[in-house]
Computed example of a mutant assay.
Amino acid sequence: MAQDTGLFIYGIVPSDVEPTPEAEGVGSPPGEVTAIRHGALAALVSEVGLAEPLGRPADLTAYETLLDGTVVVAPVLPVRFGTVVTGADAIDDLLDAHHDRFAAALAELEDRLQYLVHGRFDEQAFVSGLLDGNASAAALASQVRGRPEAESREQRIRLGEMISQAVELHREAENRELIDAVGGYAVANVVRPPSHELDAAKVAFLVAADDEDDFVRAVEEFAEQRRDLIRMRLRGPVAPYDFVSAHQLVE
C-alpha cells in the first residue's frame, strides 16, 4: 500500500464473511471492499487516500449500506465512521489485541437485528390538541391571532415555550408507551435524542430474528393507534449502531 493511502474500517465480522463483488466503499471513486482476517475475525476495509476528505453524504451512505447489507447475513460490530488506519498491520494488531472481546460480542449479536422507530407529531394536530386542553395556551393564541408579529412578540415567545414544553412532556410519554407496546419483542432498546423539535418518539430496538415479524406487527399496530397525531416510520433491519461497536469495546 502506498504511504499516501490508508485503510478505512467499516466493521468487524466473523472470519468467514466475504464481501460481495459489487460492494462499494467510501471515497471518490469508491474503494473496493475487502476483508482482512485474523483468527475467528475479519475487518471489512477499503483503501482511501489519507489526504482525501471523508464525510460527504455519499460516504456515509456507502458506510451504512455496507454494514446494513452485512447484518442481514452475519453479525457485525460497526466501527465508528471515519476510522482510518495506516495499513494491514494496524488491523492485525487491533484484531489480535481484542480478539476474544470482539468474538464474544459477535456471538451475542448472532441472529439479532436493529430497528429504529421514529415518530413525529403532526404540528397542526398537536397544537390544536394543546389549545383545546390548556386555557392559558389558548388565551395566548387568541392574543397573537391576526396581530403583527412585532406587536405580539412577547406572547408569541411565551406560546412557543409552552408548545415546546408540551412536546417534551408528550415525547417522554410516547417513548415509554412505545417501549411498553413493542419492547416485549426486543432484547434491548435505546432511546435516541430527538433530531427535530416535533419528534414524538425515537427508539432503537435490538430484535431477535425469530421475533422480527411480531415486532414489526406490533409497531404497525402502535402507529395505527396514533396516526391522527403522529407520523411513524420504521427503519430496519440495520447494523446494531446503538448497541455495540468495536470502538466501544476497545475503550
Rank of each mutant, 00 (worst) to 15 (best):
D214L: 11
D214G: 13
V216N: 00
V216W: 01
V216Y: 00
R217H: 06
R217L: 03
A218R: 07
A218M: 06
A218E: 04
V219M: 03
E220L: 13
E220T: 07
E221W: 08
E221A: 13
F222W: 14
F222Y: 15
F222P: 00
F222V: 10
A223G: 15
Q225L: 08
Q225G: 02
Q225D: 12
R226V: 07
R226F: 04
R227C: 09
R227K: 13
R227F: 02
R227D: 13
D228N: 13
D228K: 08
D228C: 03
D228R: 10
D228F: 03
L229F: 13
I230R: 01
I230G: 03
I230F: 01
I230Q: 01
I230S: 02
I230L: 02
R231S: 12
R231T: 15
R231I: 11
R231Q: 08
R231M: 07
M232L: 12
M232I: 09
M232C: 09
M232G: 11
M232H: 07
R233Q: 12
R233S: 12
L234I: 03
L234K: 01
L234C: 09
L234G: 11
L234D: 12
L234R: 00
R235E: 09
R235D: 05
R235K: 09
R235A: 06
G236V: 05
P237E: 12
P237S: 10
P237I: 06
P237H: 07
P237R: 01
P237N: 11
P237Y: 10
P237V: 09
V238C: 04
V238G: 03
V238P: 05
V238Y: 01
A239C: 06
A239T: 10
A239S: 03
P240T: 15
P240H: 10
P240R: 14
Y241E: 08
D242P: 00
D242L: 06
D242K: 06
D242A: 12
D242R: 05
F243P: 09
F243A: 14
F243K: 05
F243D: 08
V244K: 02
V244G: 01
V244N: 01
V244E: 00
V244R: 08
V244F: 01
S245C: 03
S245Q: 04
S245N: 05
S245F: 14
S245I: 12
S245W: 15
A246E: 04
A246L: 10
A246P: 11
H247A: 10
H247T: 15
H247V: 15
Q248G: 08
Q248K: 01
Q248T: 11
L249D: 12
L249H: 05
